[in-house]
Simulated assay, not measured.
Amino acid sequence: MSRSVRLNTLATPDDTVARSRAVRDRPPRRSRRHPHQREAVISLDTQVIDNPISGERIVIHENVSGPGRLAWELVLAPGGRVPSSHAHPAQEERFTVIEGRMRFRVGLRPIVAGAGTTVVVPPGTVHSFANAGPDPARVLVTTDPALEMAALLETAAAMAREQHAAGRALPRVLDLALFMCDFEREVRAPYLPVAPVRLVMRTLARLAGALGRDSRYRRLRPR
């Protein structure tokens, strides 16, 4: 994972100072800019998250995420899919396919989407998605409002990497309970009644803390 990779370029009139003898001997170029004008700063902030179980590579573009909204790019390997159906209680997700073909299920409606197609998932709607083609699929996703979605994506991928390294088919129950409690606003289980599920998850999360079993999960959480 690479976090906060920043590229800054800044030019001023002082940049005419030569960097080598050959450059020094070259006649100076005339600048059409005002003597006190600076070129724009180009800033690129990205956060790359890899999930070895789902086949997802997520690139969060910090510089295009507007106030209250998270913009991220999803690259899904052939055969890749979101681990399970889920819903976001208070967030709308918008998927725009850039390359490849995707298969969505939004509620009970199946959708196959090619390049240029946008699929909108309203808040509280159960949905899932998968790569429907032989090549990697590239999708632009916006989550509105963002809430803690970036932390959710990073934590889910860290749990998947730990699960993959241990060779387990399923995540640890207590880790899953802690995850569901930490991100109650961002995700919920599909089809099941919210209140009983939340009660069970909170009880298991308290048990994990009482037994000291939450330390491994907390290490997976982003700072």
Score class of each variant (00 low, 15 high):
111 I>Q: 10
111 I>N: 07
112 V>W: 07
112 V>C: 11
113 A>W: 00
115 A>M: 01
116 G>S: 00
116 G>Y: 00
116 G>R: 00
117 T>P: 14
118 T>V: 06
120 V>K: 08
120 V>D: 04
122 P>N: 07
122 P>I: 06
123 P>M: 10
123 P>V: 02
123 P>N: 02
124 G>H: 07
124 G>I: 04
124 G>V: 04
125 T>F: 05
125 T>L: 03
126 V>I: 10
126 V>E: 05
127 H>E: 01
128 S>L: 14
128 S>N: 14
128 S>F: 12
128 S>D: 15
131 N>M: 04
131 N>R: 11
132 A>G: 05
132 A>I: 03
133 G>F: 03
133 G>N: 08
133 G>T: 06
134 P>I: 05
134 P>V: 07
134 P>E: 14
135 D>F: 09
135 D>G: 12
135 D>Q: 13
136 P>E: 05
136 P>K: 07
137 A>T: 09
138 R>E: 12
138 R>P: 03
139 V>N: 05
139 V>T: 09
140 L>C: 11
140 L>W: 15
141 V>N: 11
141 V>G: 00
143 T>Q: 10
143 T>M: 07
143 T>E: 12
144 D>H: 14
144 D>G: 09
145 P>M: 10
145 P>N: 08
145 P>T: 10
148 E>L: 14
149 M>I: 11
149 M>N: 15
149 M>K: 05
149 M>Y: 15
150 A>R: 14
151 A>W: 10
153 L>P: 07
153 L>G: 00
154 E>N: 10
154 E>S: 15
155 T>H: 07
156 A>R: 13
156 A>Q: 10
156 A>D: 13
157 A>T: 09
157 A>Y: 10
157 A>R: 06
157 A>L: 07
158 A>D: 02
159 M>A: 12
159 M>K: 11
159 M>D: 11
159 M>V: 12
160 A>W: 13
161 R>N: 04
162 E>Q: 14
162 E>V: 01
162 E>F: 01
162 E>Y: 02
163 Q>N: 11
164 H>Y: 09
164 H>Q: 11
165 A>E: 12
166 A>Q: 14
166 A>M: 09
166 A>V: 03
167 G>T: 04
167 G>L: 13
168 R>D: 09
169 A>E: 14
170 L>T: 12
170 L>F: 12
171 P>K: 04
171 P>F: 05
171 P>H: 05
